[in-house]
Design a protein around this nucleic acid. Sequence first.
DNA 1: GATGAATGAGCCTTCATTCAT
DNA 2: GATGAATGAAGGCTCATTCAT
Lengths: 215, 215, 215, 215
Amino acid sequence: MASISKANANPSRIRETRRRQLVEAAVACIAERGLPGATLSAVTAKAGLSHGLANFHFESKDALLSETLGHLAEEHHAEWRRALDAAPADPASRLAALVAADFARSVCTPERLAVWFAFWGQATHRPYYLEKHRQYDGARKAMLQTLCADLAAVPVQGARPAMDPDRAARSIEALVDGLWLQLLLDPAAIDRKEAHACARDGLAALFPMHFPPAT
Amino acid sequence: MASISKANANPSRIRETRRRQLVEAAVACIAERGLPGATLSAVTAKAGLSHGLANFHFESKDALLSETLGHLAEEHHAEWRRALDAAPADPASRLAALVAADFARSVCTPERLAVWFAFWGQATHRPYYLEKHRQYDGARKAMLQTLCADLAAVPVQGARPAMDPDRAARSIEALVDGLWLQLLLDPAAIDRKEAHACARDGLAALFPMHFPPAT
Amino acid sequence: MASISKANANPSRIRETRRRQLVEAAVACIAERGLPGATLSAVTAKAGLSHGLANFHFESKDALLSETLGHLAEEHHAEWRRALDAAPADPASRLAALVAADFARSVCTPERLAVWFAFWGQATHRPYYLEKHRQYDGARKAMLQTLCADLAAVPVQGARPAMDPDRAARSIEALVDGLWLQLLLDPAAIDRKEAHACARDGLAALFPMHFPPAT
Amino acid sequence: MASISKANANPSRIRETRRRQLVEAAVACIAERGLPGATLSAVTAKAGLSHGLANFHFESKDALLSETLGHLAEEHHAEWRRALDAAPADPASRLAALVAADFARSVCTPERLAVWFAFWGQATHRPYYLEKHRQYDGARKAMLQTLCADLAAVPVQGARPAMDPDRAARSIEALVDGLWLQLLLDPAAIDRKEAHACARDGLAALFPMHFPPAT
DNA sequence: GATGAATGAGCCTTCATTCAT
DNA sequence: GATGAATGAAGGCTCATTCAT
């Protein structure tokens, strides 16, 4: 096939190219038909490749799915690191940037949401899903905690004592994930912008002295 | 089996008994082995019934799963209605009771959480999951909005304007669902009580004039 | 299918009937197409059953093959026990009967020979083949040793000392197996009768005082 | 790989070198994992060559296996011809040498036994296995018959008439093959030396006047 | 009502073979 | 010559569903 030949341009990269193709096809399939619908046939067909190739480039279906989850996690991770790097140095701005990244156009798509929740719905029964998840999520959670602690450390006159930083971090994460779930289950009722606004309001509620009252 | 014969006492109720048995076995199977692991064989085996019975009492596997989701939703619905009925009449107390119901021992079990997220992970691809979900969730969301509106309507001197009630309702729901996700994915890091405390703190942050500062 | 309904005559025996059918079909397939040709499809087709039934009645293909080998071994075992029971009490007659059983029409068929050697050719790599084989073969070998020892114990004037009984037993077994191999590989050059005669001559050579010179 | 490049020294011989490498790797694979385990990947991997090479140097897998069997047969053939050439001229010595060759260290290894029986177990279904086998075995059988006839022709006073030479030849071959089977299936119970002793005893029993009573 | 045997579609995986580079 | 990516046909197995008893 012509499209395949093109990929051959750099022979030493074929393997990586194919793995990437398959992972992306897997994302599309899971989003479209759910985890059970992401059969090897469906994935390879979507990638425009032959059935047997999946097992040639991946040890097993599980390996493909695991890499798919990893790919998603890595994208997400890169996104919020980038956002953090671009943000002003003050904790409030950084926290806002971190949360904004979760609702960035590149991360918060219906497709990706569907895949995240598909994996989470199975995570309990797939140790390596959990592992992959924790590995990436741990870093983000730690960052969240650091930022919340920084914010809480700033003395603000007349303010009632801020929430425990760890609990605040947890709440922010929960809020974001819960909004993702709403975006997944009822996209007619809420869109990405509204979800982000909601999250920002939540931040403002948690740290009223550091965030201006929302819109 | 003797236990089955006993159920025959009232012939007209056998069907209901069996359906209930199967639904509960389905919950257990999904929690234990995930949605894909909840095969008809696994479910009937767990229910102590014969292989063919599932299709005898349910039109199809999908019908069984749909009823299983309905069963869960109904239990949840009953729980928060009961909590609401038992709560004092003021909006703040009622809101607190509504949230508390989500973390009640009978609702917020590892088993049920696993099942909820298993369904949600598939919801996009199963119209009738979504339907069932919305049907029950809509009522709760409406109640949440009403209570938030009631709270927001109470004029409090010196307070900065409260969040938009609908957005507040949304945030509360998101917070709860997000905490559920954390309970599911990292039960070692957070337990039911801590999750509930988190949710209560969130309420306090959203409506600082109506809820005392948390612990 | 009518042929299947007939088997249903006694419901409680269906499972055994099917297993037997499948095992016998497996024997036929292995004989006809070799161990690799004995696919589940081929076996079930030969048995006139549907593909899925094999896995319903046997845990796995390996379980079916293992039972097939066991079936063969059991038949063989029954044959020589019967022959032994029917033989006169003197060791020579019993030994002759034991050897004759190996060339009995019911045991020494081209089909069965093919299956035996198919299994032996794989035995090294299938621990349970070896186990099954040894389990049954051990009994026969012990009997062979006993009879050889009995014969060697009979003092015969002027005879040169008989071969060590264990070695004699081993030689007899080897002779029989080797003749089986010839029957398998070159049926045009040797038939069952000639093979048996050969074995009898071997016996006579090993124990010249107890067996009359052959034809 | 360097080791491969070296083989390039004489370009015209590369093909032969590769074929030999592959055949020897096939022997090792069959011995180690059985005929079904001797996949082209396994063989090329064991030979340290690239996946595609097998089909490059052999028309098909069957061609490789056929050549593998031929290789084994040729080695065996060479061994007994050599043994015969080195033996004294009298029939008894030559017969003993012929049999000894079957238990020579270079021929009678666990690896080779496994391969022989792997092929024999499949021979019925692979015409060209049988052909290859008969082609080489025929020569040996003829030699065996000649030697037995020579021995039988020697008049020995007082001896009971020797066995029919052809039948004796057949018995010797059967004895050897049967001992090989025992070496294959129960190496713990019998070793090469004991098997050879057994065969020598068998010879002595068949031709008591020409062979001294065994150890 | 209940049982479990039976069916067949479909999934993951393996593998001989082909072929572009 | 050599490489390893690509293909597609099976193979073993699972499972929802049907159905005779």
